[in-house]
Design a protein around this nucleic acid. Sequence first.
DNA 1: AAAGTAAGTATGAAAAACAATACTAAAATT
DNA 2: AATTTTAGTATTGTTTTTCATACTTACTTT
Lengths: 129, 129
Amino acid sequence: MKNNTKIDNQEVRNKKSFVFDEESCPVTATMQVLGGKWKVILINAIYHTSPARFGELKRSVVGITQSMLTQQLRELEDDGLISRKIYAEIPPRVEYTLTEFGLTLAPIMQSMAKWGEEYRIKKQKVSIY
Amino acid sequence: MKNNTKIDNQEVRNKKSFVFDEESCPVTATMQVLGGKWKVILINAIYHTSPARFGELKRSVVGITQSMLTQQLRELEDDGLISRKIYAEIPPRVEYTLTEFGLTLAPIMQSMAKWGEEYRIKKQKVSIY
DNA sequence: AAAGTAAGTATGAAAAACAATACTAAAATT
DNA sequence: AATTTTAGTATTGTTTTTCATACTTACTTT
């Protein structure tokens, strides 16, 4: 116990004690919104093709299913990141754009895009062709 | 069909046709590595507490289970983002640090941290207390 | 009259992610 | 001798995601 206290003090002295949860870690908080397989990809896609139609996203976002697309778009809308504009036409037309708030994610997407490019280069170097 | 072609041409004229997959979209490529509930949070935690011991991460990363922690750390190691240093001691000691490559993720974490802080402010404004 | 169109909804199933619990080793401490 | 410590593994179960398929509407084109 004495020893334990000694170690604790050492730890306190040498190292801040961090807590990573939604409350105290802003990165964790961001992940609550952007988590999931498709969120970031979709935001990025809308960012680049805005205004993006539903069918357009379905074709361009490789691998996503229609129901996933619908669901994720709804969640992004609920979080205030994208807006959905319905045209009263037949056949229907719906256009998605980033809201002003959604546009504040641009730096995240840009840093990810940059990293992804470098990652691709790194992978090429490792591959054995 | 004639009409269809007309619309297609219009689209080609007015809008680039994007494809969002791992090959052609660097953001999507990044998400292959950082996807999942814990990856970004863990990288961020190690970034801030490096060198981070296993038990330390288990305590500080709120909500993660031991098996999840082990699994995610292994995957991050396999992707070359973190390194694992084992000390031949009893009881065991293992320290995790970001590799040089892992450190290249810093801009992503920083942009996420910044956004998370602003998101918190926005949520406060909306709440009804 | 049948087929095509866009943007969905609904349903059920499969797959992946995640969680809980118990267990281990080898030395130090009580 | 029992307990504590750290960093796990193994097993089983639950929950969440994701997928596949069929269906809808109301108008246009064939």
